[in-house]
Design a protein around this nucleic acid. Structure first.
Length: 264
DNA sequence: ACTATCCCCTGACGGC
DNA sequence: TGCCGTCAGGGGATAG
């Protein structure tokens, strides 16, 4: 489940290696991947022959800025991964980009939830990226909402980039209960939440993401955050801060893992 | 505006 | 061995 740190890791890996390359071809047997377009041919016509001018990130989207002015947006959803120069195609390879310099970029995705689309400009995806959010903006987004804090963190339209792993980790670090109404948070708690958000996301980037299940870097290697997580998927285990036992509850169809003692 | 539920899709895993 | 139910959870749709 690639979230902001995983996507950022992928972008940092890919950018110096494919920037300036030409897209020579696109192969895919999974039309669903291009569900925002008529068919694969339409996508191919729009991108083949163009140069990748920049690789960047917006929330959980990987963005290729193309020489023609348009932009290729790749969303890995839950099980997608981008692999550069993969050893061989496998049954989960849904799409292949042929790049100049004899480079092959594969999009693998077990569950076919991923999505690739062409957008007119980067502006279309500019949301409130968790890492470029100022405290003032963050606070205003939080206090305006009656929604509970955990689903708020998962809502990409409000704060983009955070998914189930890091929302649990951030709330554990900040000592905030996932069911708290956002509008009930005190100024000091919002400050703590903001600092925890930056701290956890930057730490996870440093660890190159969490390989809980399917996530891997474009060279096939794994990230190291999962091994140092404090809350996510630790149901029944001891809290690493106090004597609490990590509890699991479902909220909005997602599982929240938290410590009932220090998360209030 | 908020909440819960279902759907998309496939693999892992536990029970029988 | 193999069949079945459950869980994983990003995001969109929909009903209440």
């Amino acid at each position: 489940m690639p979230e902001l740190p995983e996507v950022e890791t992928i972008v940092r890996y890919l950018c110096p290696r494919i920037r300036g390359k030409l897209i020579l071809g696109l192969e895919s047997n999974t039309p669903r991947l291009f569900r925002d377009h008529k068919n694969i041919r339409e996508v191919r016509n729009k991108i083949v022959g163009q140069k990748i001018k920049e690789v960047s990130r917006a929330g959980k989207n990987i963005l290729f800025r193309l020489s023609g002015g348009k932009c290729l947006a790749i969303h890995l959803m839950m099980t997608g991964s981008l692999l550069l120069d993969p050893p061989a195609k496998n049954k989960f390879t849904r799409c292949l980009f042929l790049l100049s310099g004899n480079l092959l970029l594969a999009f693998d995705d077990i569950r076919k939830f991923g999505r690739i689309r062409i957008i007119d400009s980067l502006e279309e995806l500019k949301g409130n990226d968790a890492l470029s959010l100022s405290f003032k903006k963050f606070k205003n987004l939080i206090i305006a909402r009656k929604e509970r804090i955990k689903p708020l963190f998962l809502n990409q339209k409000i704060i983009s980039g955070i998914g189930n792993i890091y929302s649990d980790e951030i709330l554990w670090h900040a000592g905030i209960h996932p069911f708290r109404a956002a509008s009930s948070l005190q100024e000091s708690e919002i400050k703590k939440l903001y600092n925890s958000m930056k701290k956890i996301l930057n730490l996870a980037i440093k660890k190159e993401g969490s390989s809980a299940r399917d996530y891997k870097k474009p060279d096939g290697s794994k990230g190291g955050y999962y091994e140092i997580r404090k809350a996510y998927q630790r149901t029944g285990e001891e809290c690493l801060r106090d004597a609490g036992i990590i509890k699991r509850m479902v909220i909005g169809g997602r599982s929240a893992h938290f410590c009932p003692i220090h998360q209030l």
